[in-house]
Computed example of a mutant assay.
Amino acid sequence: MNKLILPGRVMFAIGIAGLAILCFVYKDFIVGRPPAWSLPFNLTSIVAYISGAILITASVAIIINKKGARASMAIAALIFIFSVLRHIPQFMNDWLNTYKSVALFGGALIVGSTFILDDPQRYTGNTQSQRNIFILTGKLFLSTFFVASGYAHFKFAGFVTDFIPAYIPFRTFWAYFCGVCLIAGGIGIFVPGISKWASLLSGIMLTGWFLLLHIPRLIAHPTDASDRMGLCESFTFAGIFFVLAGILWNKKQAKSLY
């Protein structure tokens, strides 16, 4: 359903561009919140500037629908090389952000898959198979991240409760409720018949967090690095889930994934 895929692509691209700008601000590749590495400072900055420029260029390409597949794959490659690979050796120390970086990588694959079918003449058995691999891989990584995040809402309930703005009542309830929603969404995107609804509702939930949680937190803490990244990440993930919902809403496309 293009009514979901197109705005989802734009949301994803804007979120990635925002994270790319933060790469310039913090002079490091921060997409997926990778741990610090031992490169010389100047080299770290060079990597940040080059990768940030590529991310912005790729984001623009996705928005204007020019070589969107290559642009999405470039984003996926940068996240894998400069975030996922940095996380893996320190997985036990920062497992949730490891899952986040993997989910962003998978999300880029999902977005990229939607461009493969833009030219009907290229819709052959091979491209369909490639597209399905991208989507299934992305779904697996998104699901893992959502389930892990839901678990974190229970394990670190006190932190999550304090993270919710004070103007929202019953914060402890919402902390647990959102944890349940995350787990349900992560599992639901793999259940035939409800996967499209799980994706759509997850996108709506993340958009709600962007508006009700992350914007107020950024206003309250405009220089906080975590809140800046959280704002961009929530918008990026919302876009990914809208794209996924658009894919799954097409019965023919969804059937090929099961």
Rank of each mutant, 00 (worst) to 15 (best):
I110V: 12
I240H: 03
P169H: 01
L96H: 13
C178Q: 15
S45N: 13
I164N: 11
L206T: 11
N42H: 13
R33K: 12
A76T: 01
Y26S: 08
L140Y: 03
P222E: 05
G106L: 00
T223L: 12
S202P: 04
V147K: 10
T236M: 07
F24C: 00
I62L: 13
I135P: 02
F105S: 01
T127F: 11
Y176H: 15
S149F: 14
L140H: 00
I116Y: 08
F241I: 01
S83Y: 00
W249G: 14
P165G: 09
M92G: 11
D94S: 13
R171A: 05
S256R: 13
H221M: 10
A48P: 03
L248M: 12
I79Y: 00
A36H: 08
P120Q: 13
F12S: 06
P222R: 00
M73H: 06
R171E: 01
R70Q: 14
C23Q: 11
G208W: 09
G112E: 02
A103D: 04
W249V: 00
I187Y: 07
C181W: 14
Q90P: 01
A17R: 02
F154D: 10
I54H: 03
L231F: 15
R122Q: 15
I189W: 04
G8N: 08
A17T: 05
F154T: 09
G150F: 10
I81A: 05
V243M: 08
H87P: 11
P216E: 05
F105R: 02
S143E: 08
C181G: 14
A77K: 04
L257H: 12
G106P: 01
L182E: 15
W197F: 14
A157C: 10
S226C: 03
I64V: 15
F163S: 15
F91N: 09
I88M: 11
M11W: 12
P216C: 01
E233Y: 12
A166T: 12
G188A: 06
K196G: 04
N65G: 00
Y151C: 11
S129D: 11
F163C: 01
G230F: 06
G208C: 10
P7R: 09
L211R: 06
F190I: 03
G15T: 09
F105Q: 04
L213F: 15
C23E: 05
F82W: 10
S38K: 12
T207L: 15
